[in-house]
Computed example of a mutant assay.
Amino acid sequence: MARDPYDVIGVARAASADEIKRAFRKKAKALHPDANQKDPKAQDRFSELNNAYEILSDDKKRKQFDRGEIDAEGKPKFTGFEGHGAGRPGGGFAQGGETIFEDFNFGPGGFRRSSTRSTGGQGQKPPPMDDFFDILSGMSSGRAGGRGFDPFTAAEPKPAGEDITLTIKVPFLDAARGSTQRVVLPSGEALDLKIPAGTREGHRMRLRGKGKPAALGRPAGDAYVVVAVEPHPAFKVDGKDLRLDLPVALDEAILGAKVRAPTIDGEVELTLPPMTSSGKTFRLRGKGLAAADGAGDLYVTVRIVLPEPSADLEGFARLLQDRRKSDPRETL
């Protein structure tokens, strides 16, 4: 069962719209999945926070929740037997404090209706429970033999529609840059879904009322769309950071060079200093994935690629061997 939106955001019921917004932003920063990458429930808590803010940030929905018309998920609540409240004709409380209890029955003489009127003064006794059950029975359509529905089951809400979960595959760069993806629901309805920039594997989005239909008068279920990000041949995800192995020629590593390195936004020029060793890593700030607390970085690691074998290369290697004065593994 969903928690009270006020408790989720951590504000009092009398909180102003600005107080709710400030509290939401503070919690969103603390609960964001990027800040809780080792917590498997981080996404669920963040979704719960967003759902709560969706209700409390909307003045109409907030008032509906405060009046008990919708639940903590924003779904309409079953309100019982409407039409028998204050000031409504046909039962309940009449004007001037009078109480009208109407008795509807099917008997040998056919349909009968009578009423008991009380002024609400001192000493008046409420009608017996049988009269209350007669009112409930009279509200039914009636069955042969004068049988109505069971008063104890009449107030049971009809079941709401079931929620469904869909998984969509999104290309890595579309998820990293942000894109629009088409989703086809089991009903056949097609929707264009906005994928935010920086979307990670397992990101879940909620489509209200797009789940399985429900009984008449009850809300349909929701559809939850889970994003499966397709892997990229070069980029590896590390939280909000990205990592990339960059092939470099032997001469580029020895002499130094300007080389092109890919990023999710296009290629950039990277300067290699002379005598760059394989395994050296360069940090490109802000070239990682978008996140609520700022974009991540791209870490580019040099991988030296040897040229095709040749006599010249072998001679060069033997010259290096003769002149080498240190063991590259002496620190191990």
Rank of each mutant, 00 (worst) to 15 (best):
R3K: 08
D4A: 08
P5S: 09
V8F: 07
V11A: 09
A12Y: 06
A14N: 14
A15D: 02
A17C: 01
K21F: 02
K21A: 15
K21C: 03
A23Q: 06
A23K: 01
R25N: 14
A28M: 09
P33S: 11
D34S: 14
K38W: 06
D44R: 04
E48R: 01
L49T: 11
S57T: 06
K61Q: 12
R62P: 08
Q64N: 11
D66E: 15
R67C: 08
E69Q: 14
I70Y: 02
E73D: 15
F78V: 05
F81H: 04
E82Q: 13
G83H: 09
G91M: 01
G92P: 09
F93M: 13
A94L: 11
G96H: 14
T99P: 01
E102A: 10
G107S: 13
P108G: 13
G110T: 12
R117H: 13
G121W: 00
Q122R: 01
G123V: 09
P126I: 13
D130L: 10
D130N: 13
D131M: 03
F133Q: 09
D134A: 14
G142M: 07
G142E: 10
A144T: 15
G145H: 02
G148D: 07
G148I: 09
E156S: 10
E156A: 09
K158E: 13
G161V: 07
L166V: 13
V170A: 11
D174G: 01
A176D: 04
V183H: 03
I195Q: 04
T199W: 01
M205I: 15
R206D: 07
K210N: 05
K210F: 00
P213D: 07
L216F: 02
R218I: 09
G221P: 06
D222S: 12
V225N: 00
V229E: 01
E230M: 05
P231D: 12
P231W: 05
K236C: 08
D238G: 06
D238Q: 13
L242E: 12
L244W: 00
A257H: 06
K258H: 06
V259G: 02
V259S: 01
A261E: 06
A261R: 04
I264V: 15
D265T: 11
G266S: 07
E267G: 02
E269K: 06
M275F: 07
F282W: 02
K287E: 14
A290L: 05
A290H: 03
A292Q: 12
D297W: 04
R303I: 12
V305P: 04
A311V: 15
G315I: 10
R324P: 05
S326D: 14
D327A: 03
P328C: 10
R329E: 15
T331M: 08
L332T: 10
L332Q: 07
